[in-house]
Simulated scan of single mutants.
Amino acid sequence: MSRANIATVNGERYEVLRLLGKGKGGYSFLVRSVAHPSMEYVIKQFHRDPRRHHLYEDTLQSEIRCYRRLRELGIRLPAMLDVDIDAQRILKEYIDGPTVYELVRSGGMKDDYVAQIRDMAKRLTSHRIAIDYFPTNFVVDNELIYYIDFECEDYTAERSFERRGEPFWARTEAFLAYEAELLLHASPIPETA
Rank of each mutant, 00 (worst) to 15 (best):
R123V: 13
E15M: 10
I145F: 13
T125M: 00
T59H: 05
D119N: 11
L103E: 04
E162H: 04
R13V: 09
S106L: 09
R163N: 06
A177L: 09
R18V: 14
E93W: 05
G11L: 06
R89H: 08
R105V: 08
A177G: 06
E102Y: 03
E181N: 07
S33K: 06
L182I: 10
F134N: 02
L184Y: 14
L91I: 05
R18T: 15
P190L: 07
G26A: 15
Y94E: 03
I75H: 09
I117W: 03
Y41T: 14
G108K: 01
A177M: 08
S187W: 04
S38W: 14
R18H: 14
H36K: 07
Y113T: 01
E72K: 14
R76M: 08
R118H: 03
I85D: 05
Q45I: 12
A87N: 06
A115R: 00
R76K: 09
L55P: 02
I145A: 14
F134P: 02
V83L: 01
D86A: 08
Y178E: 02
N10C: 11
H54K: 12
K110F: 00
G25E: 07
Y147M: 11
Y56I: 00
S187F: 08
L77C: 11
Y133E: 00
L73H: 04
N142R: 15
L176F: 05
F161Q: 00
D149N: 13
E12Y: 07
E166T: 05
Y41R: 07
T192P: 07
H127N: 11
Y101W: 03
A115M: 04
S160L: 07
V114G: 03
V114S: 02
P37R: 13
E57V: 13
A157L: 13
V139N: 03
C152W: 11
Y41H: 12
R51Y: 11
R159C: 02
E12N: 15
I64V: 15
E72Q: 12
R159V: 02
R105K: 11
A157K: 10
T136M: 00
E179M: 11
V104L: 01
P135A: 06
I85Y: 12
D132F: 00
E191H: 15
C66H: 10
L19E: 15
I43M: 13
